[in-house]
Amino acid sequence: MAVLVIADHDNATLKDNTHKVVTAAQAIGGDVDILVAGTNTAAIAAEAAKIGGVRKVLTAESAELGQGLAEAFQDLVVGLAGGYDAILTPATTQGKNFSPRVAAKLDVAQISDVIEVVSPDTFVRPIYAGNALETVQSSDAKKVLTVRPTAFKAAAEGGSAKVESVSAPAAPAKTHFVDQKIVKSARPDLGAAKIVVSGGRAMGSAEEFQKVIEPLADKLGAAVGASRAAVDAGYAPNDYQVGQTGKVVAPELYIAIGISGAIQHLAGMKDSKVIVAINKDPDAPIFQVADFGLVADYKTAVPELMGALG
């Protein structure tokens, strides 16, 4: 058995999602290799090589891989697939972008958003916005999985795997990168933050969202999230969206402000360790999952909370 894990990184540093997917790979069993594809791969591979229990780290370097073009990733991973029984990718937007192409080219099913490895061929994944968990057994010789990183503990460091480079595929002929606008933020990454402060439709405007949610997040060193309703209404950008169709988070502390708790939002945060809800509606469904509920208008509660935090 050998398992290939596709590393999550931003062409600068390795992301913790990689460590978590390595844990899922180790649950499948066999040798675990990591593929670092993009630019600046030598430095990222050096970090990946430190993850414990990893056999080797492969690097592939090209501009198109750095741009995350799905066609380039497909060609690279399909080319390496012969040596592996399973290919695991973090279920990030980038992972979701290319992994189904790999599965289709290999003529196997993709098992999306895996949250538990039951055995080397049996996996659990959420369906219906997390209202149900499906256990599936694969009959494919090769398994292609996207793995929800928040469902696995990060693999410990302490390894010293060897690093090998592999050749990058030719540039895709029919897809061209134009530009990219990545929001640079001093705040922690939403998927990796220990504390997340999220705002909902009750904010009423983008200005109010910024005025209420962001200072509280900054005070706590937290990432900022939003409900789908707040994103739909234009109060917050899409990459803040926590929920089944947005990001799935599981921080130590999740603070939901003015969020009613629609099922699709709960699907994105209900695995948080401690959940706080601040909402003026005592019947809001969010209180059914909150460890600590404060029935109050956020307009008074958030300033009081800021004060109480000192």
Partner: peptide, 11 residues
């Protein structure tokens, strides 16, 4: 929509 922002590509 990509992780952390927006990307534009021509296909």
């Amino acid at each position: 929509e990509v992780d952390g922002g927006l990307q534009t590509i021509d296909v």
